[in-house]
Design a protein around this nucleic acid. Structure first.
Length: 347
DNA sequence: GCAATTTGACCGGT
DNA sequence: ACCGGTCAAATTGC
């Protein structure tokens, strides 16, 4: 008897999710149609949100008997995508970065300069209580290779590259800069797509959380340094994280599909379970859309405890090497955990 | 002892 | 010349 009930609920849930997906598709179409009005889009967004909210509530009521704190405990992670200035990317053959190592060898024809690599920015606000580990941990293994004081910036900028750069020539890098105004905000600029297969490393990278060490040049001892400790998960134990994830997509008129999974009927785990969180919770971003997603299906890092992620896709270019890539190829990087490999990371 | 981080130097673009 | 990004030797942590 109970099974029937559960089945029914599952069906409803799937239904709801499918509806949300369809709505999202519609929205995508609308985004591509310039004639589409904001109102229409807004409506679609509302519908999507509603749909996800329903789904989430179903999940909450039925399963998740554990605690029921599926919604939004104390922490939130808000992601804000802001379209960044066009940044005319002239594909000048010669470009900035000094990859001596690569350059010296045989870089003549391979114009795969880092300039051509996709690039976007993510702003993360860390709310009290949460270690910075959370938002700063995006599921990838980064290795710090530099730190620089930036002109006009109060805090130094950290430079990170993929740990597997040498072994797998993964050119992904990122920069972490703390906002001087809001020390709770970290601006993380990603560059390049991860070509490495991290999760498979035999040696389980210890999730060794690097202790938060204060930067030397800092003036505030309150805040911790942008230290990334990533851990690759060999097993995507998709724990249902109680955290709520607020995604603020702002000015996302990029025709690019940031969320390819939304419209791709791929049988994979595209099942995004999400719900809309009441607007009150959100910052002032007017005209932005909030998604609150439970992380269960995203395998989102549990470290995301509280904090807001305000992300802004910056100029991105297709990586020449990966012709068939998603335009921005960032969906999987912005939300590395959302894809397949959930950071199994410790507990 | 190894691996990651620190930190000053170096390099290239503007 | 300045500035941002990277390298690599030294240092630190595990």
């Amino acid at each position: 008897m109970e099974n029937c009930n559960i089945h029914w609920e599952q069906k409803s849930l799937v239904n709801e999710l499918a509806q949300g997906r369809d709505l999202a598709r519609q929205l995508q179409i609308h985004l591509n149609v310039p004639s589409s009005s904001y109102g229409t889009r807004e409506l679609l967004v509302q519908k999507i949100i509603l749909s996800y909210e329903k789904a989430l509530s179903m999940l909450n009521s039925s399963s998740s008997a554990s605690g029921g704190e599926q919604q939004q405990p104390t922490g939130h992670v808000a992601i804000r995508m802001v379209e960044s200035p066009p940044h005319s990317l002239n594909e000048s053959p010669r470009s900035e970065d000094s990859d001596r190592e690569f350059k010296d060898h045989d870089n003549k024809d391979s114009s795969r300069k880092r300039k051509n690599l996709p690039r976007w920015t993510q702003q993360i606000r860390v709310t009290s209580g949460m270690g910075l580990e959370g938002p700063l941990d995006d599921g990838f293994s980064w290795r710090k290779y530099g730190q620089k004081d930036i002109l006009g910036a109060k805090y130094p900028r950290g430079y990170y590259r993929c740990t597997h750069r040498n072994v797998q020539s993964c050119l992904a890098t990122k920069q972490v800069q703390r906002s001087d105004e809001d020390p709770t905000i970290f601006e993380i600029t990603y560059r390049g797509k991860h070509t490495c297969t991290q999760a498979s490393t035999g040696t389980s990278t210890p999730p060794s959380p690097s202790p938060l060490q204060p930067e030397r040049t800092e003036r505030q001892n309150n805040l911790v340094d942008p230290q990334q400790k990533q851990q690759q998960s060999q097993q995507h134990t998709l724990l249902n994280l109680p955290e709520g994830l607020r995604v603020i997509t702002e000015g996302l008129d990029t025709r690019e599909e940031l969320f390819p999974s939304f419209n791709s009927p791929s049988p994979l785990n595209n099942s995004y379970v999400g719900s809309f969180s009441s607007p009150f919770a959100g910052p002032t971003t007017s005209g932005t859309n909030y998604f609150s997603m439970s992380q269960r299906d995203f395998g989102v890092d549990q470290n995301f405890q509280s904090g807001e992620i305000i992300s802004a896709p910056t100029s991105a270019t297709n990586s020449p090497s990966v012709g068939l890539d998603i335009p921005f190829g960032q969906a999987d990087q912005l939300f590395p955990n959302f894809s397949f490999d959930g950071p199994g990371f410790f507990s």
